[in-house]
Nucleic acid binder design. Sequence first.
RNA 1: GGCCCCAUCGUCUAGUGGCCUAGGACGGCAGAUUCUCAUUCUGCAGACCGGGAUUCGACUUCCCGUGGGGUCACCA
Length: 471
Amino acid sequence: MVRTRIPPSPTGQDIHIGNLYTALINFAVAKKNHGKFIIRIEDTDRTRFQEGAEEKILSSVKAFGLHYDEGPDIGGPFAPYRQSERLPLYKKHAEELIEKGAAYYCFCTKERLDELRQQQIKEKKTPRYDKHCLILENGERTRLDSRRRVDARRGIENGEPYVVRLNVPANKTITFTDVIRGEIAINSNDLDDQVLLKSDGFPTYHLGVVVDDHAMEITTVIRAEEWISSTPKHVLLYQAFGWELPAFAHLPIIRNPDKSKLSKRKNPVWASWYLEQGFLPETVLNYLALLGWSHPKEEEIFSLETFIDLFELSDVKPVGPVFDLVKLTWMNQQYLQNKTDAQLKKLIIEFSPRATKLSEETLTALMPLLKSRMQTLQDFEAQTWLFFTNKLPDGTDKELAAELLEKFTGITDWNHAMIFAELKSIMLARKVKMSVFYQLFTGEKHGLPLPEVLEILGKDKTLELLKLAIV
RNA sequence: GGCCCCAUCGUCUAGUGGCCUAGGACGGCAGAUUCUCAUUCUGCAGACCGGGAUUCGACUUCCCGUGGGGUCACCA
């Protein structure tokens, strides 16, 4: 049984679009293999914790249609799915590591650590913990004198703050296979003695993720590329526990146009932002699917089901793609265009409650006009401005308005053909272009087809607007 | 800087030694359709980072550069 997961941290205002991408791939891999997709909240950083973030993340994931099988709000066979509720588990495992000599207690103060780091930076060395507190529980000692070892034991008994660090062995080659990149090897000398358990009793990501992925029987760890460099530490932990390694796949990081990691300074990063802007969830997912992967027949528009069907994790390209809002917009327009009138109407009403101020009939008549002219749902209000106003835009050409009033008054059969005929006659007589009428009615040089719009607006309302514009 | 990952049009990508005169999509430009705009359609411009090696033959394999990215926290 394939089991995948995403471990979001409730530290932002929503799920990051990059994490949504990771979620999509995790979801696809799980579904493709008839497995389970899980959400586990990694709320171990109480200083960055944000109230309400978890709810927001969960609701966003749902809004995009990535239904999870197990999670903090719905439970599951491995509950709880929130790390803050699993603290004893991490402590127990940290102690197990200490017994095995794979980890050790550390009482170093922040001051000493800072000093050490400054010194190393000054010497142009990579900042790294110096194993100052390393004492092996089995009685072996390293370079510590026995007095300090006794102090350490006493410190724990006295309730002094401590952390548990990973005891990285010297000069060992650590290897793991990445589904996307193949074999990756690193020398243990380049690894730091990472803190595993913090002084507040919470685990760091490294301990938490390994313990939980194993406990929750995760088979495939799919996460962003930025985790590659810490994977060897995780491998060390799996080995120390004697656990089987899951499959690893590190997805490319989505980039800003300047190629740096996608950041909120340079790009909209919160998933719900895209929804608020009037992008459809399926558009966003479709667009994301095309980052690092392509349809076998080079198709651009396809459903989530198709994606799941065709997707192969090993086909993902390891190159970090730039997020292109322009292409996303084009894609959204395609999706909107492919909707039926009824579907589009429903989407518009959900997005712009204000639309319900218009009659059902008006709304229905507007759909064919709108369909090819909307890039996002947000365009509805701008395009239909005329239907919500009581007065024409400022700077009206009064003379033109008067002429229109006169001609329109004479129309008995109010329909777009008749309306256009009158517009046409004015255009010929005055030697003006269609754009002057758009200017008059909307303040813009162009918009929804005017004759059709006026027909839908109705003769009474049209004449009323013109009259008001003249006085 | 150390370590790790990566490298095809501006962007997303196809390409797994000969099918490549390097294909598609977005965007750009030009044109057709059209009562504005949009849609739709047609066409044009536009890329294999550099150097070696392997091979009869490299976009495709290997090495070295160069460039970009990631990571070096009691954050994830």
